[in-house]
Simulated assay, not measured.
Amino acid sequence: MQQTKKTYTLQEATKKMEHYCAYQERCHKEVVQKLTDMYMIPEAIDVIIVHLLQHNFLNEERFAKTFVSGKFKIKNWGRRRLTFELKKKDIGKFNINQALADISDEDYIGLFNDLTEKKAHSIKETNVFKKRKKFIDYFLYRGWESHLVYDRAHELIK
């Protein structure tokens, strides 16, 4: 049985993308991918992207800021992981730096210290070196700066 792919007019695709962007902040890469999945031709994709930008449905700076604040507050990611994930989404260096600047150093270090206290107590490992390794791996994976992680590991796990 031949499956026919759904095709969209420019208006239909534009409306669909307006809803897609209104539902949640999106980056250009996600929108282009979605349009490509909808089998839109490159010329149509360009027209729709321009429309979304002009009508403020798509805004890289706003996307970067909401992405950073969400992942920092909810997933407790460090600056390195946030930067890496934004680069994966083709966000420019300027927007990444602006978004990261929204996190105050006090909040950043405060959250890091709270998380490290909890994690150090929750690791059930008697061998100090293994415990320290688990601790370090946990925070490096979440993108916290290595100098912070190593200093804190040696401070908390003796």
Results as ranks from 00 to 15, higher is better:
67 F>I: 04
41 I>Q: 09
127 N>E: 12
35 L>D: 12
20 Y>M: 01
34 K>W: 09
55 H>D: 04
89 K>Y: 05
130 K>M: 04
96 I>S: 02
151 D>M: 00
74 I>G: 08
22 A>I: 01
54 Q>L: 02
26 R>W: 10
57 F>G: 02
22 A>G: 00
34 K>I: 04
157 I>V: 01
66 T>W: 09
12 E>H: 07
119 K>Q: 07
152 R>E: 00
142 R>Y: 15
156 L>M: 06
98 Q>V: 10
51 H>E: 05
148 L>Y: 15
132 R>N: 01
27 C>K: 14
109 I>W: 05
26 R>F: 08
60 E>G: 03
100 L>V: 00
26 R>I: 10
21 C>W: 11
96 I>E: 14
108 Y>G: 02
133 K>S: 11
85 E>Q: 05
108 Y>Q: 07
124 K>Y: 06
16 K>R: 12
13 A>K: 05
74 I>M: 05
6 K>P: 06
108 Y>K: 13
35 L>P: 07
52 L>F: 10
68 V>F: 11
8 Y>C: 01
46 D>G: 08
85 E>F: 03
75 K>Y: 11
2 Q>A: 06
2 Q>G: 06
146 S>R: 14
61 E>M: 14
134 K>E: 10
93 K>C: 05
100 L>M: 06
75 K>F: 08
34 K>F: 13
11 Q>T: 12
14 T>P: 00
53 L>G: 07
154 H>W: 04
145 E>I: 10
119 K>S: 04
90 D>F: 07
6 K>E: 08
71 K>R: 08
140 L>N: 03
16 K>W: 14
64 A>C: 06
142 R>K: 13
99 A>S: 06
129 F>I: 08
98 Q>N: 11
102 D>N: 10
40 M>E: 07
27 C>H: 11
38 M>L: 09
132 R>Y: 00
15 K>G: 00
19 H>A: 05
33 Q>C: 03
80 R>V: 07
140 L>M: 14
116 T>I: 01
52 L>I: 03
14 T>F: 07
54 Q>R: 05
108 Y>I: 06
60 E>V: 13
138 Y>C: 02
11 Q>C: 04
66 T>R: 14
88 K>L: 09
101 A>N: 15
28 H>R: 11
128 V>D: 08
95 N>R: 07
90 D>P: 04
132 R>E: 00
104 S>M: 07
126 T>W: 11
85 E>S: 02
94 F>H: 09
39 Y>R: 13
54 Q>I: 03
92 G>P: 13
144 W>M: 04
141 Y>A: 10
50 V>P: 01
63 F>G: 04
106 E>Q: 07
55 H>Y: 12
64 A>T: 01
32 V>R: 11
69 S>E: 07
149 V>M: 06
12 E>G: 10
93 K>H: 15
3 Q>D: 12
28 H>L: 09
9 T>Q: 03
124 K>V: 07
114 D>W: 14
14 T>Q: 10
34 K>Q: 15
145 E>W: 06
158 K>Y: 08
47 V>P: 00
116 T>F: 01
